[in-house]
Amino acid sequence: MSTYREVKPGDKPFKRAYVAVMLWFVGRAIQSAARVDRAVRAEFDALPEGFTFCLGVEPRGPFMVVGKNRKGKAKYLGWNLQGREIDLSMRIKNLEAAILLFTFQESDALSACRNRIIVDGDIPAACAMMRVIDIVEVYLLPKIIARMAIKRYPAWPFRRKYLGRVRIYIRSVLGY
C-alpha cells in the first residue's frame, strides 16, 4: 500500500511583502518621473487617454496599477485590480521570478527573454512602459545596481541624473 499525505505548501510572506513594497514604490516613482523627466513624459503623451497599465505577479499578486488620467498625467492607481479595465498587463509568472527582477539579479529584458513575463495588451505600449521602467530604475538605483537591471546605462548630464533623482525620490515618498 502506497503511503499518502496531503500537503499545504504554505506561503512566502517575506518575499511577497518585499515585492509589494517594490511595486508600490516603482508605481509612485513612475508617477513622479512623468512629472520630472521629459523622456518619461513623452512616452506617456504618446499613450491614449485613460490608458491603464498593471505590473504584478501571478497567480495571487501583488500588483500595481499606473494610468493616464483625463488631464494626460501619469497616476499611480494602487494595487487593486478589481473593477479596473486594464489596457496593458505585464504579469511576472511567479514570485521567484519577481524576486530575481526586483533584486536586480536579472534585467527586465533578460526576464522577458527567459519567458518569465506574460504581456497582455498592445506591444508598442508594452515597449514604451519598459522604457519608462528602465528610466525610473536609472533614477532610483545607484549605477552599479542599475547596470544589472537595465540593458544599457545611459550617459545623462549631471543635472538630469542627480537633480532628477532627488526630485523623484521626494515626490515618490510624498506621493505627488
Binding site: 502506497s2 503511503t3 499518502y4 499525505r5 496531503e6 500537503v7 499545504k8 505548501p9 504554505g10 495571487r60
Partner: peptide
C-alpha cells in the same frame, strides 16, 4: 516541488514511495 508550489494556495496529495 512542494516548495515551488508555495504561495499557490493549492492542496497537494503526495505519494513518494513508488
Amino acid at each position: 516541488v512542494i516548495s515551488a508550489l508555495k504561495d499557490s494556495g493549492m492542496t497537494l496529495g503526495v505519494c513518494d514511495d513508488i
